[in-house]
């Protein structure tokens, strides 16, 4: 699979990352190099091998349904760049 410049543009948009022309070219090349390297894995015979869904050999880690105290609101809002009336204040929302 080859990453095109268009793919990089799309991913950058989806991730809300701004980049200039030179960066686009640079990342297109770098991403392709990474994918080519990882592509080696495709040569391994995985017949009969179960997919790894999680790197830890654990399942069903759960907690009982009990409500615990929450964070004090002042603390919750403490690092917010802006707040108003106990709300987080965010910039105008533009539909994509």
């Amino acid at each position: 699979m080859k990453i095109t410049r268009k793919d990089v543009e799309t991913v950058a948009f989806l991730s809300r990352l701004a980049m200039d022309e030179a960066e686009m070219d640079k990342f297109t090349g770098q991403l392709n190099a990474i994918l080519e390297y990882v592509d080696m894995l495709n040569k391994v015979d995985t017949e009969g091998v179960e997919p790894t869904d999680h790197i830890l050999n654990l399942k069903n880690v759960m907690r009982a349904d009990e409500a615990k105290p929450s964070l004090a609101r002042e603390l919750a809002l403490k690092n917010a760049p802006e707040q108003e009336d106990g709300y987080f204040k965010v910039p105008k929302i533009l539909e994509g």
Binding site: D65, A67, S70
Partner: peptide, 27 residues
């Protein structure tokens, strides 16, 4: 209608004052 949220212990009660049922996990 659980007592607590899906991934943390914050209450699910409807109508609480804004940002009072929050914790580091759900934030």
């Amino acid at each position: 209608k659980t007592q607590s949220k899906i991934f943390c212990g914050c209450s699910t009660k409807f109508g609480a004052e804004q940002n009072t049922n929050v914790c580091p996990v759900c934030l």
